[in-house]
Simulated assay, not measured.
Amino acid sequence: LVLAGDLLKTLFPCMLCRFLLFPRLGRNAVLYAGIGVAAGHNFPFWNRFRGGKGVAVTCMTLFIFSPGFGLLSCVLGGCLVLLSKSLTLGALAIPLLFLLPAFTVYGSEAGVLSCILAAMMLQKHFLPFLDYLHGNGTKIDLIAKAQSKLRERK
């Protein structure tokens, strides 16, 4: 339910900005709205600017902006999670992988806006990333966890 809420709270403002409020911006309106959604998600003023990490919000923004490259970035980030057993590495990889197509396919404005999304992700995941580099990061084996759940059901 939380994931569905994060995805919907991203979808609605991105589509609203893209098609109703700022259609002249074209698809870049999605990135502007996505930055606003991510900022509100990551730094809510009503919770003393302590919020979520913005992974689902960022993924949804990238997917709405560019379904092909957004999905590819998310899938590659997910593969990195499976290989490294680090949620942090996957979370950081997703917006970073999107930067190349953002700049080369969609132009400098889209590239800069994507950099802002990546910077917010880096800010939220910087300390866990340092922990990972020092060998102290939290590791999660999603495949073993899924297999364990399947065994419990049998």
Rank of each mutant, 00 (worst) to 15 (best):
L150M: 13
L127W: 05
G90C: 02
G26M: 07
K149F: 14
L71F: 14
C17R: 01
G40A: 10
L83H: 04
G34Q: 05
A110R: 02
K145N: 11
A4G: 10
S84M: 03
N28K: 05
N136M: 08
R153M: 14
P128V: 11
C14P: 01
E109L: 15
R151E: 14
S84I: 07
Y32H: 08
W46T: 14
P23F: 08
L31P: 00
G111Y: 09
A4D: 07
V37P: 02
G26P: 03
L96P: 00
S86P: 00
N47V: 08
V30Y: 03
L122K: 00
G34P: 03
R50I: 15
L97F: 14
G40L: 13
F103S: 07
P44Q: 10
T104F: 12
T88K: 01
H41D: 08
L80M: 13
A33R: 07
P95W: 05
L150K: 13
F129K: 02
V81N: 01
R24M: 09
S84Q: 03
V55W: 01
L122R: 00
G135N: 05
R50M: 12
G36I: 13
R50G: 04
H41K: 07
V75N: 04
Q123M: 12
L87N: 06
F98S: 05
S108A: 14
L31G: 04
D141P: 06
C74T: 15
A91P: 00
F12Y: 12
G51W: 10
L7N: 04
G54Q: 06
K149L: 15
G90Q: 01
W46G: 01
F12M: 11
G5Q: 11
I94G: 00
G36R: 09
G34C: 08
T10D: 07
G111C: 11
M120W: 05
G78L: 10
V112M: 11
T10H: 06
N28S: 14
R153L: 15
L3H: 09
